[in-house]
Write a protein that binds this DNA or RNA. Structure first.
Length: 276
DNA sequence: TCCACCCTGGAC
DNA sequence: GTCCAGGGTGGA
């Protein structure tokens, strides 16, 4: 479940492995993996050089000069370095081989399990045509993201959890980190956003930056599917206070962590620390 | 504002 | 064999 921290780590890996390298071979497994389709995908990438990488919310942006790869890993997607080229298949949904360096062998990156995800190609000037990117809210680490901003978007009676998951409100939070942020801010996920006082809004703001920042430092949260491009696990799962801890006791007060459904998502909460 | 749907593997 | 999780979309 790659959210902002995991995507950040993956991008760092891709940058260090492949930035400045030319694409030697590129293929997708199936027509629906990319908006370019099976035939056009290689035609538009081979021979181009990866100029740089960037993150927009949970989306990976790979800058190939005349072409931009827009990759969304959604839930199960991951990126892994392979030791050699292999044809894409159901598991290795998209595979890109970069040229060999003078001292290193070829760099082969597999974009795995893009089952609900995709590896779209856009022309640089047309990225905003992407339906999600055009609607993304501010990045949690941007200046735009502030307590004042949150106050303005919280003037709705929707559940706070649903709003924080909404990428047009904040770009990059997903189910794990929203639960953790709300616990840290001592706000119950079902609270109507417009009932938060300014202290609580500030707490949500600070917790978002703090938790995401620490998760990046620990190279993300690893459950079943996420590993970085070097196959390493993140360490933030050891810092989780509520997520996946239902039935266990709260580290702060000892109350049993509950699991409920909010905004259609499994949601973890300490009923004492986060009164509803 | 809510919810079924998309895809797949894994849990029962 | 059935059911569910997960992010995002599109229709009710």
């Amino acid at each position: 479940m790659p959210e902002l921290p995991e995507v950040t780590v993956i991008l760092d890996d891709i940058r260090s492995l492949a930035a400045g390298k030319e694409v030697f071979r590129a293929e997708v497994f199936r027509e629906d993996v990319s908006n370019a389709g099976v035939k056009e995908f290689p035609r538009r990438l081979v021979g181009r050089t990866l100029q740089g990488v960037e993150r927009r919310g949970k989306i990976l942006m790979l800058d190939f000069g005349d072409v931009v790869g827009v990759v969304h890993l959604v839930i199960s997607g991951r990126v892994e370095r392979l030791s050699e080229w292999r044809e894409p298949d159901k598991e290795h949904t998209a595979v890109i081989e970069f040229e060999s360096g003078p001292e290193s062998g070829p760099v082969v990156l597999a974009f795995k399990k893009l089952w609900l995800g995709y590896f779209d190609l856009y022309e640089p000037g047309h990225i905003e045509e992407h339906p999600l990117i055009s609607r993304l809210g501010p990045d949690p680490f941007s200046r735009e993201f502030s307590p004042e901003y949150l106050r303005s978007v919280f003037e709705r009676k929707a559940a706070i959890k649903g709003l924080l998951l909404d990428q047009s409100v904040v770009a990059g939070l997903g189910n794990i980190y929203v639960d953790e942020v709300l616990f840290a801010a001592k706000v119950h996920p079902t609270r109507k956003a417009n009932t938060l006082d300014s202290e609580e809004i500030k707490a949500v703001y600070s917790a978002s930056r703090d938790i995401l920042g620490r998760a990046i430092e620990m190279r993300g949260t690893t459950f079943d599917s996420y590993h970085d491009a070097f196959g390493e696990s993140g360490k933030f799962q050891y810092q989780l206070k509520v997520f996946a801890r239902d039935g266990e006791s709260c580290y702060v007060c000892g109350t049993e962590i509950q699991k409920l459904r909010v905004a259609g998502r499994g949601t973890h909460v300490c009923p004492t620390c986060q009164p509803s």
